[in-house]
Design a protein around this nucleic acid. Structure first.
Lengths: 221, 221
DNA sequence: CTCCATTTTACGGATTTCCGCATTTGCCAA
DNA sequence: TTGGCAAATGCGGAAATCCGTAAAATGGAG
């Protein structure tokens, strides 16, 4: 098992349980932080001193408070950490069940496991940690159906941008004008129309309103 | 303080902390259940035996599993419980931060307090419990800004239905036909148009896509 | 019942989205 | 350079929405 573990979790009661679990599995050094930025600072500092963490367990969403955190959430933290050290084992422990966000964590960020907070999640977290420690990836049972159901639509930045603009209330005409100004290509109304048509198709949406609804449900926007 | 308390929470580690808090405040009998239906059964049974609970502390969202719960979530539980006994003190303890859902709990269901799970939420929960025990309502500090910002749009069932149908991908024509069949009035396309126009207006949405986006963000649909 | 206010309906033209088809552009390989 | 091909663009008619106006229906109050 991992000896040195960093836990990023802002809800105190949960953090406590996680630490107990990790220690019961034999970890000798477990550090808990409540802010993403602290996690990054800590992780980098220890690595640079030749005593790197072996495992990162992190939540995705954090309560916003007076402190302005340079890292906006769990995804950003994972991305930054993985860019710094692709080998570091990462397990995400979150309540977030939006298929898109989970898929993205596995595919884009290469996390080792994802555990959904729930009735038996501590057990699952234990299994996940053991699986990842053994060098494999962990897939929670309830995810496998969810993931299959939402046949993973992969979106590029442009398509994401289209959805965001649409959800923000811009008409196609306005998008054309804005994209032209901002230097985003392609920007012809015709192409924007076509891309949105494709998006509706891949999401199996009947209208643009439906598309926005589905995108929100899946955590795309 | 309350002597007899029912806690409804499916995440074990959180439930544990809540129980400890409630007991430290002097409660003599604290019962925890992980399913809404169990909460309802328990609450009713004890009341009918002349030993009613004095306080209900409940989460909003619960993990779905093999058991099919007749009560779909915290809101439904609160509604049912309040219909049974309007005097029962209710405090909601949840991660849910959608303004509409919180507003609805206060206005429609008459809860005594709402505490957002977060870094200092156990402290806040303590304050909330003491406040409600004193016969007052508790409003968490971070809610006050959120609530003001989203100048509470109040929606009737019809408007909700419109938004749902729209998000589900039905065109106005289709809605007219469906409403006619289902006996929902009004069902003329003209009125549907007008009502959606009004909704866009009260949400300050620029397009229907924007409207769906805002409604999703605020937890309306 | 009548009056008044509100809501529902109907209608129609302006605007926007929808969607197929034709053309142009950009890029890679031969 | 030249083909070939996919993406981007342009175009146009059909369909849907946007939004104002006006008529009809509804529902209370007096």
């Amino acid at each position: 098992m991992f000896q040195k573990v960093l836990v990023v979790e802002d809800i105190d009661s949960i953090a406590l349980s996680v630490v107990q679990l990790v220690e019961s599995l034999g970890a000798h050094e477990v550090v808990v932080v409540k802010y993403c930025e602290d996690a990054w600072t800590k992780l980098k500092a220890e690595a640079l001193q030749g005593r790197p963490f072996e495992l990162l367990i992190t939540d995705l969403s954090f309560e916003k408070d007076h402190r302005q955190d340079a890292i906006t959430g769990g995804e950003a933290l994972v991305a930054q950490v993985k860019a710094f050290d692709p080998q570091l084992a990462v397990v995400v422990y979150s309540i977030e069940d939006k298929p898109f966000r989970i898929q993205q964590l596995y595919h884009e960020h290469g996390i080792g496991g994802y555990v959904l907070k729930g009735r038996r999640s501590l057990e699952q977290l234990k299994t996940a940690l053991l699986t990842v420690a053994a060098g494999e990836r962990y897939y929670a049972p309830e995810l496998q159906t969810t993931m299959r159901a939402s046949s993973f639509v992969s979106l590029d930045g442009y398509e994401l941008h289209l959805l965001e603009q649409l959800a923000a209330g811009y008409s196609l005409d306005e998008m054309e004008a804005r994209f032209k100004v901002l230097g985003i290509t392609p920007h012809s109304k015709s192409t924007i129309e076509k891309r949105l048509y494709r998006l509706r198709d891949s999401f199996n949406a009947r209208t643009l309103m439906h598309l926005i609804s589905l995108a929100k449900d899946q955590g795309v926007i």
